[in-house]
Nucleic acid binder design. Structure first.
Lengths: 107, 107
DNA sequence: CCAATAGTTTAGTTGCAACTAAACTATGAT
DNA sequence: ATCATAGTTTAGTTGCAACTAAACTATTGG
């Protein structure tokens, strides 16, 4: 079996985890937001499930997944911080672009 | 290039990082503590270096490596916590064994 | 200058993780 | 019962990461 760190090494799996962070999402909805096959996503979900990083619940034909923050232990806050700082970077970039546009107008 | 998370997915690289955590260690000393070739360890060190996760300093024929805690960002405390809890587990295990021995003597 | 030491770098191999396509399972609707 | 939907599972392919062995670079010591 792969350890938690190895599971999180894959960018697709990290994106999945981010998607089901704090809320349940159906497998189909997850699969739809990636450009790989549903089978591939299902395999990623299976690995996340086997490591206990996500919980699963079936409701009719839908399988709802959600991150298990407790199982992630110290990695949970680390991931949140990384995602947050990534958002911060994007915001900073957007602001820098806006400034560039403003200065262009002033020149 | 691999991202920090992918770099840390490899158990050997994590063990190297733990070894140079908070102190400089020569490449040779690092390599000696693993059962793979020095070349393999050098390649791991190169990846850690390229990602900025370790710093390097040459002194004569020796190359000293040390973890760059700042570069690890939110992952630094997470790794420390994981290592600490691993130590805690080992300690708990050792204590349980000691108790078993004590009870055997008492029986 | 020559040999030894400390380590890196390169070329080539090998195993495994991620993927696709297709088969399969289970539920819901008609 | 039959078909559609939602998803998993399996079989097979492919690319890449980790490894070894060997060549190479740079420094120290005689």
């Amino acid at each position: 079996m792969m350890d938690a760190m190895a599971i999180l090494a894959d960018p697709t799996r990290r994106a999945i985890l981010q998607m089901v962070w704090g809320r349940e999402v159906a497998a189909g909805k997850i699969a739809a937001s990636f450009d790989v096959t549903a089978g591939a996503i299902s395999q990623h979900l299976a690995k996340l499930r086997e490591t206990g990083l996500v919980r699963m619940r079936r409701a009719g034909r839908n399988w709802f997944y959600e991150a298990d923050l407790d199982a992630l232990g110290p990695l949970a806050p680390a991931l949140e911080a990384m995602w947050r700082s990534k958002l911060d970077e994007l915001r900073a970039l957007a602001e820098a672009e806006q400034r560039a546009i403003d200065e262009e107008g002033a020149a």
